[in-house]
Amino acid sequence: MATDFTTEIARLRSTLANIEAVTRPDELKADIADLQTQAADPNLWDDPDHAQALTQKLSHLQARVDAVESMGNRIDDLETLLELAGEEGAEDATEMVAEAEMELGEIDAALQTLEVRTLLSGEYDERNAVLTVRAGAGGVDAADFAEMLLRMYTRWAERHGHAVKHLNTSYAEEAGIKSATIEITAPYAFGTLSVEAGTHRLVRISPFDNQGRRQTSFAAVEVIPLIEQTDHIDVPESDLKIDVFRSSGPGGQSVNTTDSAVRITHLPTGIVVSMQNEKSQIQNRAAAIRVLQSRLLQRQRDEEAAKKKQLAGDVKASWGDQMRSYVLHPYQMVKDLRTSHEAGNPDAVFDGDIDAFLDAGIRWRTNSQQRDEDD
């Protein structure tokens, strides 16, 4: 069936108009102009932290405006291409129509991604993300599964050109990891990845069972926004217990001959943060404090959200115990139990192909929040 370009282009323009209504590019341009004026101040870098925050914000706002405007330009160019193809006597009309169909599909996909981005309007959504994976029930299979998930998120970030910093890894004795924490640097990393928080389940024939039995194992994923200097989460020294020790590699192998690794316990809450991936104790301590502040910030947000739910008379948790299942036997499927989105190629998913799951999760969360507000 021939593509109805008139209808399709009208649909694209309607989607773009909805995106523009949310992003308000004219207001963003006014903010950009103000930030550019501040950035031109010759004394800007007298305060490096402020200067870096300002330039990052300027870059993020400009990228948002450019993304919206580029979509409008691409739709305009598509219409021009179709007009040329429709001119009488056009020699390459067939080739131009084929090119138009390809561009239509690419614009549609890009708009869907941009539309999901507009749903990330939470207070901390635009922050970098600190993601922790922990092995759950299932013994050595759970530790191996936790490492598979860690690689999945690392590969997802690499696919998109996002920087990944390994903050801490606790290796299991036989295989896999007990836990690991990474920092992903990208605009809206927290808002995007926060839908991954929860319990993940793996069903497969265990490679560690000499009888080849099927094993179900679990791993937990935690995602928190990276703390910024302006958040003012005070952590008194008297609330901290700080231990230092030598960092180690897989199987307890020593990788450092000095006490450079740091473990900080926040006494009032019992939160423990360990860091061993930096070269010096000072660097590990600073990194651990920053992650501790991020977790305290997330704890504060969770308590506020729980209080609001209690006041509203809704005591049900918003996330189930198992939010996604990865089944490798007796069939091959990855299925999100909240959104019902599924994929039949687990290998691709574990290799970082999780964008469709992220998009579905963000839409599901937005719809759930809207239903809660309506109630």
Score class of each variant (00 low, 15 high):
249 G>S: 08
91 E>G: 00
257 T>C: 01
289 I>G: 02
13 R>D: 09
342 E>I: 02
85 A>E: 13
92 D>I: 04
59 S>Q: 10
93 A>W: 05
300 Q>I: 03
233 I>T: 06
148 M>R: 09
344 G>E: 09
100 A>D: 13
207 P>H: 03
255 V>H: 11
37 T>H: 08
27 E>W: 07
140 V>W: 02
221 V>E: 07
119 L>W: 05
329 H>A: 14
300 Q>A: 11
238 S>P: 01
370 Q>Y: 03
290 R>H: 04
317 A>Y: 08
257 T>S: 13
321 D>R: 12
46 D>M: 02
215 Q>S: 10
40 A>F: 11
77 D>A: 14
343 A>N: 11
154 T>F: 03
315 V>N: 12
107 I>E: 01
290 R>N: 14
322 Q>H: 08
340 S>R: 07
344 G>H: 12
96 M>G: 00
76 D>F: 10
157 A>W: 07
60 H>T: 14
7 T>D: 11
288 A>F: 06
144 D>G: 04
41 D>I: 05
139 G>Q: 08
287 A>G: 05
154 T>N: 07
284 N>P: 07
79 E>T: 14
291 V>Y: 03
152 M>T: 07
230 T>L: 08
109 A>V: 01
297 L>W: 03
142 A>F: 02
334 V>A: 02
121 S>D: 12
124 Y>Q: 13
176 G>E: 06
258 T>Q: 15
118 T>K: 09
105 G>E: 15
219 A>N: 03
359 D>S: 14
240 L>E: 00
82 L>S: 03
91 E>K: 12
21 A>T: 04
34 D>F: 12
217 S>D: 09
137 A>N: 07
92 D>N: 13
110 A>F: 02
372 D>Y: 10
63 A>G: 11
71 M>N: 01
268 P>S: 02
188 Y>S: 14
134 R>N: 13
280 S>M: 15
255 V>M: 09
